[in-house]
């Protein structure tokens, strides 16, 4: 009641808008700090290094693009990303004997269906996404071992090598990442479902009371996330040519970290796929600089964690009212 009655006068609001946001300032500071460090780093400004940065961002980036939609739809993070990508990789490798196209389609279908079902429970039942995806992670992981018999799944036939192609010196996955980022951004900005996603994420109760299709919109977001996970899984499979149960490693949290560094708020209703792309690249650049300067893995991970923490706090302070 108070805040309704005492909305700030328009002039003050405009003045506030004219000032650059705290986030913009923080990013500028980051660039100012990072840039001299980066350019003075030996071998940073080489084509090979730029390729390495892009390549290392590709797989986490693809998953993160999908995770962005799910997070925009409202405080949802998935704890089952690694397991899903692993199962997709297994399906892909096991069905390669039916041809690359069939195997790819089956793999994508697996990812979309498995993830969209979780979206169904979140969207229509309002199931808690964290608990649900922990359960799904156990089910998918357990199921994967059951079907694979606990042994690595290797390619049933060749033909996947084309996915490892590097046109213009960049892995195919980088191009797919860019295409998916643009596609996701287009869905978010231009389609009805994408626009409704922001509304559902910002205020689910209001979206429900207004009769918006909360359930359907949520399922669309999760299905797209499933697609991204499946693409990640297919690339993982073709890089490694065989799939073990921990193929996807730390994908789950790395993807969430990229989304958060992109400035998407965990509370939902805000965010963008292109900024997630930026987040994934920023993490990649910082890891690269630290690597080139001779810091070990531990320091790279530590800095990544602190970066995520800083961005989360900044985004929160900026969005607070």
């Amino acid at each position: 009641m108070m805040s309704l009655l005492t909305a700030p006068p328009a002039a003050a609001v405009r003045a506030r808008r004219a000032r650059p946001g705290r986030l913009a300032v923080a990013l500028a500071v980051l660039v100012v700090v990072l840039l001299p460090v980066a350019v003075t780093t030996e071998r940073f400004l080489t084509l090979g290094n730029a390729r390495a940065i892009l390549a290392s961002a590709a797989l986490v980036g693809i998953t993160a693009i999908g995770a962005t939609l799910v997070m925009i739809a409202g405080s949802a993070v998935s704890m089952a990303a690694s397991q899903t990508a692993t199962v997709v990789a297994m399906v892909f490798l096991a069905t390669l004997d039916r041809g690359l196209t069939v195997a790819t389609l089956l793999a994508l279908l697996t990812g979309v269906v498995v993830t969209a079902v979780q979206g169904l429970a979140v969207g229509y039942w309002e199931a808690n996404p964290i608990v649900l995806t922990i359960a799904a992670g156990f089910a998918i992981g357990g199921g994967a071992i059951w079907f694979s018999g606990g042994t690595p799944v290797s390619a049933a036939a060749g033909g996947y090598e084309i996915l490892n192609a590097t046109p213009l010196g960049l892995p195919l996955a980088v191009y797919v990442l860019l295409v998916l980022a643009v596609l996701a951004e287009w869905i978010l900005r231009r389609t009805t479902a994408g626009r409704q996603l922001y509304l559902v994420g910002e205020n689910r109760a209001a979206a429900r009371a207004a009769g918006l299709p909360v359930g359907r919109v949520t399922v669309v977001a999760w299905a797209f996330f499933g697609l991204c996970l499946a693409v990640t899984g297919v690339f993982l499979a073709s890089f490694n040519t065989s799939a073990t149960t921990n193929l996807a490693g730390t994908l789950t949290l790395d993807a969430i970290a990229a989304v958060l560094v992109g400035g998407t708020a965990i509370a939902g209703g805000k965010g963008s796929a292109l900024r997630t792309l930026g987040g994934a690249l920023l993490i990649s650049v910082i890891s690269d600089v630290l690597l080139l300067r001779g810091y070990e893995t531990g320091v790279q991970i530590l800095v990544k964690g602190l970066l995520v923490l800083a961005v989360v706090v900044l985004v929160h302070l900026r969005g607070r009212r």
Binding site: S75, V77, I130, L253, I256, A257, L260, I266, A267, E296, T297, G298, V299, Q300, I301, L302, V303, K304, G305, L306, V308, L309, V312, V313, H316, L317, R320
Partner: peptide
């Protein structure tokens, strides 16, 4: 600061993992 706990603790988890790596 009333930041939601999931992103804060997730970031802290990553940083702590890095710390454990760095120590060892």
């Amino acid at each position: 600061l009333r930041v939601p706990s999931v992103p804060v603790t997730l970031a802290a988890y990553i940083a702590l993992l890095g710390l454990a790596y760095a120590i060892s």
